[in-house]
Computed example of a mutant assay.
Amino acid sequence: MARIVLGIEYDGSGFSGWQWQPNQRSVQSELEKVLSKVANRPVTTICAGRTDAGVHALEQVVHCDVDVGREFHAWLLGGNSYLPDDIRIIWVKQAVSDFHARYSAIARLYRYIILNRPVKSALQGKQVTWCYYPLDAEVMNKAAQHLVGNHDFSSFRAQGCQSKSAFRMVHFVDVCREGDTVIIQICANAFLHHMVRNITGVLMDIGMGKQAEDWALTLLAAKKRELGGVTAPPYGLYLVSVYYPACYGMSKHPAFNKLPEDAKRFD
């Protein structure tokens, strides 16, 4: 049995999410169906972080155990030749040592893109979230800094979140404006269900002037989801990259250079 690791890119707008669901189109089901065809036997995958319906990935990391001899280019080219147009395998490599796509990860990086102009996009309807009301990205960025650190994010988790603990370590949050686009980038050791979308909803209310800059801090202290405002839509959300200890030989996204040294202690 050999373990291979794959980088997967997908447009989540046509899927019920990453995970297998009965009678639903999921990224996992499409990918496993194709990998099983290449292997000529069933293949099961495990990902770094399950994404919700409508959420995209620039580099989801997946591993699977296979007992057939295939060159890496066979998985890459063969897999992509069978995959639908909204999923692509972007790289394949041999797993090093005890690598596990989920449990070996130190941090995940997400990006949320908001088109902030009076008119919706004709081209990016399912790739960005549209907000016609002017957003103050500088104020949003200041508010976001209250979330950095190890906190109880109960006010920012979905009501049905199944995680046993609401504590997460947020390494950094950046909010900036590029023309008509406001971009939120957030990195944490892991995320609760809907955590990024709920944080985005709070920051958007602050950016519109509906709430004060310290509202995010107030919500952290409250630990009550019902006080936390609107959950932002899924379409502007992207899993950008996953950070692993250097011993696994995985490439690092440049944004991870901002990780504090204690988060990179395994490197």
Rank of each mutant, 00 (worst) to 15 (best):
Y244L: 02
V182F: 10
A39Y: 08
W91T: 07
H73E: 15
V62H: 00
A221Y: 00
W75V: 14
Q127R: 15
A101Y: 12
S165F: 07
K264M: 15
Y244H: 01
A246F: 02
Q124W: 12
V175R: 03
P118I: 11
S121M: 13
F156C: 00
A232V: 07
A95S: 11
K142A: 06
R177E: 01
C161A: 05
Q124D: 14
Q162T: 14
L192M: 12
E30W: 11
E138H: 08
L135I: 05
Y103S: 10
N141P: 00
D85T: 06
V196L: 07
G160N: 10
T218G: 01
D214C: 01
G7A: 15
E138Q: 11
G78D: 01
F99K: 00
V128F: 14
A2V: 15
W20Q: 11
S26V: 03
S16V: 12
N116W: 07
K93V: 14
R70D: 14
P234Y: 03
D214I: 00
G17H: 06
S165W: 00
V196P: 07
F191E: 04
A263E: 11
R168G: 10
V62W: 00
L219Q: 02
G125E: 12
P254Q: 09
K223N: 11
I186Q: 09
W20L: 10
L203N: 06
V170C: 13
H171V: 04
F256L: 06
I206M: 12
K33E: 13
L220R: 01
H56G: 13
V61R: 03
P42I: 13
V240A: 09
F172R: 09
G236D: 08
P22T: 11
K93T: 15
K223G: 06
I199A: 03
D86L: 04
S16R: 10
L77M: 12
F266R: 13
F256T: 05
H73S: 13
R3T: 15
V240D: 03
K126W: 11
M169V: 05
C131H: 10
S241A: 15
D98C: 05
A39L: 08
R197Q: 04
F256Y: 10
I186C: 08
E59C: 06
K93I: 06
W75G: 15
Q19E: 01
C176R: 10
M208T: 13
R265C: 14
A74Q: 15
M169K: 11
K37E: 05
E138K: 13
I114V: 14
D214H: 07
Y238D: 05
S155N: 04
N189K: 05
R50W: 04
I8L: 15
Y132H: 03
T181Y: 06
A2T: 15
K142E: 05
L220N: 02
C161S: 06
I89T: 08
A107R: 03
G12S: 12
Y110W: 08
S29T: 07
S241L: 02
F266M: 13
G125Y: 13
Y103I: 00
E138W: 04
Y10A: 06
V230L: 08
R117L: 00
V62L: 02
A48Y: 08
D205E: 14
A212I: 00
K120D: 02
G228N: 03
P233D: 02
G49M: 09
E32Y: 01
V139W: 00
